[in-house]
């Protein structure tokens, strides 16, 4: 089996040519673009549309990739390294978070080959606990903020929420956009909030949650992704996990295309985080295949791709054991947090 094309082809610079399809993005100064509601709205409306059926078909075709044996093992370990191990429940406690952090540091205590996860993701009031539990581990602390998950609060409250998280030691902030403002066409307000939150992050990395299940169309997902990237997002993220549908492979495809094109036009690299409903190794591998074949393998790194999940990790560990031993793992073979 050989792959047609080497890195030189797949990563040919597209700056000039892609720019023509994104009239105005590359040529104009981003700050002036986002400072004008009219120009911004026109720019977003001018982005190429997304055909729903075609997009879903491409996702379905990617899902037929058969990832077996060594490729599967590689993919499983890669997926583990990209997990934002998440707990976002009203019932969360300091104890729960500490347990989760222990799992994040060493998902497979008996096997040093297994990497730690990328981050632990919690509510702002539990950031300090996570920070403490993860010190020296290399695992980042991520916090949702901005009146997660609905985002229905004043900007001042949202910024205070962010401030709390950052002050408590969050490395990464997962904000939600104002979907109501987006859907009523108030894109200027959406981007202003993103810019303000980015500033409040004070160096912490910003993941912008689009809540694609509420945006409803792929056209909206693409526009919201560009809005987030123009506003300064380090990552665009699909979902809070609190709304159905959450992440899907077609939605991820649209986000991957957006970061690919944004990178071509502006030269700035933005990551993608998929979250919500990703429970099985098979699900995770499908996303990795989509990343591999849409933006290329250089996005297959935790600094550019994340899987927000909780139960996924144990399935990855079970599947990994199956790959190594040839036997299906039992449900009690891995720890339950």
């Amino acid at each position: 089996m050989q792959t047609v094309g080497d890195l030189g082809v797949r990563h040919a610079p597209l700056d000039d040519v892609v720019a023509s399809a994104y009239r105005g993005a590359a040529s104009s100064d981003v700050s002036s673009l986002i400072s004008s509601q009219d120009r911004l709205a026109r720019f977003l409306a001018g982005l190429p549309g997304v055909d729903q059926v075609g997009c879903e078909q491409r996702a379905a075709a990617l899902a037929t990739r058969s990832i077996k044996t060594t490729a599967k093992l590689t993919a499983i370990e890669l997926a583990i390294s990209m997990i934002d191990l998440t707990t976002l429940e009203g019932a969360d406690t300091h104890g729960k978070v500490r347990t989760l952090c222990a799992k994040a540091r060493r998902p497979e205590p008996t096997d040093d080959v297994v990497p730690h996860v990328a981050a632990v993701c919690v509510y702002p009031d539990l950031v300090a606990t996570a920070r403490h539990a993860l010190s020296g581990s290399g695992v980042a602390v991520a916090s949702v903020a901005t009146a997660f998950p609905s985002g229905r609060a004043s900007l001042a409250v949202k910024l205070a929420d962010v401030g709390d998280a950052v002050a408590a030691g969050a490395d990464e902030v997962d904000m939600v956009i104002d979907r109501g403002a987006f859907l009523q066409g108030d894109v200027g307000r959406v981007v202003e909030e993103i810019v303000a939150v980015k500033e409040a992050c004070a160096g912490a990395h910003l993941k912008v949650i689009l809540e694609t299940g509420e945006l409803a169309t792929y056209d909206n997902v693409r526009r919201a992704a560009w809005l987030a990237m123009l506003g300064g997002a380090d990552f665009v993220k699909t979902s809070t996990g609190k709304v159905t549908p959450a992440s899907t492979v077609p939605v991820a495809l649209v986000l991957l295309e957006a970061v690919r094109d944004f990178s071509s036009v502006t030269g700035r690299t933005v990551g993608v985080k998929v979250a919500g409903g990703i429970r099985t190794s098979k699900d995770a591998i499908r996303y990795l295949v989509a990343v591999n074949e849409t933006v290329g393998p250089e996005w297959l790194v935790a600094s550019r791709f994340r899987l927000g999940a909780s139960s996924l990790l144990n399935d990855l560990l079970r599947q990994r054991r199956k790959q190594l031993t040839g036997q299906y793992a039992g449900s009690d073979d891995v720890s339950v947090e």
Partner: peptide, 21 residues
């Protein structure tokens, strides 16, 4: 920075699909 702190296998090595005959 934290975002670069991912543990294993950075993507530069690629993701080769094993033969699946």
């Amino acid at each position: 920075m934290a975002l670069d702190a991912g543990g294993a296998a950075p993507g530069t090595s690629g993701f080769e699909y094993a033969p699946a005959p």
